[in-house]
């Protein structure tokens, strides 16, 4: 199929973007790396009249560490995240996760902001952002605001972004002392969206697990923070009984809707296996 015809603009400033978004309303779409948007146009799943390419807006790319925060600009590509020493040092969860995003060709162009704004339920970054309690910087024509990742993902492909708003950056707290991260996912083929995945971050001091943030991907319309499973772990060594209790708790918190290749039962089973493995890796 061919995309329906559309107009294209590449403003050189944020205000230029906002102006176009305001003028064209929901007939305009922001274009970042295009790795998801162009596919949906070519399948005629959406037909915006105008694509507003943000590639030339200054200040949207790059990874900076300031104090106890790592800021990742919306236009930062997956590849830049993958190669960033800052991310490797301060956000080991994201560093592990990014290797699972698509294949190299797509990682070269796809962006952090595109992935967050698209909010695919099987995407890696949203779950990491939820686990790490990141904050997103959103800007509109009038104002800038900050929304916690845990409140940003509202439903299937639904976010807190308002019409006319742009995702500017994500701010991640640096990984604290005594904390460890494990990212695991199961995908049929390397680079595929996950069948199930877990972004796990916890304190592991003294062989005990505490403050565990276990965010699952591909088990619901949004990333799911498994709080009951975390509660079952709090302050305990991850021995067989504790792990089993945490795994059992998942049954209540993960919706795990069936997909083309796996039933709810299979997805839940796999989520439990991944939780077990993640805890094993955290304790190691």
């Amino acid at each position: 199929m061919k995309a329906p015809s559309f107009s294209y603009a590449r403003p050189g400033s944020l205000s230029g973007v906002f102006e176009l978004l305001e003028r064209h309303g929901d007939r305009a779409r922001v274009l970042a790396g295009g790795q998801s948007l162009l596919a949906s146009l070519n399948l005629r799943l959406s037909a915006p009249e105008l694509l507003v390419d943000i590639a030339c807006v200054p200040g949207l790319t790059g990874i900076t560490v300031a104090g106890d925060k790592v800021r990742i600009g919306a236009l930062t590509t997956h590849r830049q995240i993958e190669r960033s020493p800052e991310v490797a040092r301060h956000l080991p969860l994201l560093a592990q996760a990014v290797r699972n995003v698509a294949c190299a060709a797509i990682r070269n162009v796809g962006t952090f902001g595109g992935s967050i704004a698209l909010a695919d339920p099987a995407a890696e970054y949203p779950a990491c952002a939820v686990a790490l309690d990141a904050t997103f910087v959103l800007a509109g024509r009038a104002a800038e605001r900050r929304v916690r990742a845990r409140e940003f993902f509202r439903g299937l492909y639904e976010t807190a972004l308002r019409p006319g708003e742009l995702l500017i950056a994500g701010e991640f707290p640096v990984s604290g002392d005594g904390y460890r991260s494990v990212f695991l996912e199961l995908a049929r083929r390397r680079g595929d969206y996950a069948m199930v995945g877990i972004a796990a971050h916890a304190r592991t001091a003294g062989g005990r697990i505490s403050d565990a943030r276990l965010a699952f991907l591909a088990v619901s319309g949004t990333p799911v923070l498994a709080v009951r499973a975390a509660a079952a772990l709090e302050g305990r060594p991850p021995d067989a009984r504790t792990v089993a209790a945490a795994q059992a708790a998942l049954g209540d918190e993960l919706e795990a809707p069936a997909d083309l290749y796996a039933s709810r039962a299979t997805k839940l089973h796999l989520a439990r296996v991944l939780l077990g493995r993640a805890l094993g890796a955290l304790a190691r």
Partner: peptide, 13 residues
């Protein structure tokens, strides 16, 4: 032979 079919054969799901 999908993962699900293997798990079913193993009686795990």
């Amino acid at each position: 032979f999908t993962p699900q079919r293997v798990l079913q054969a193993l009686g795990k799901v």
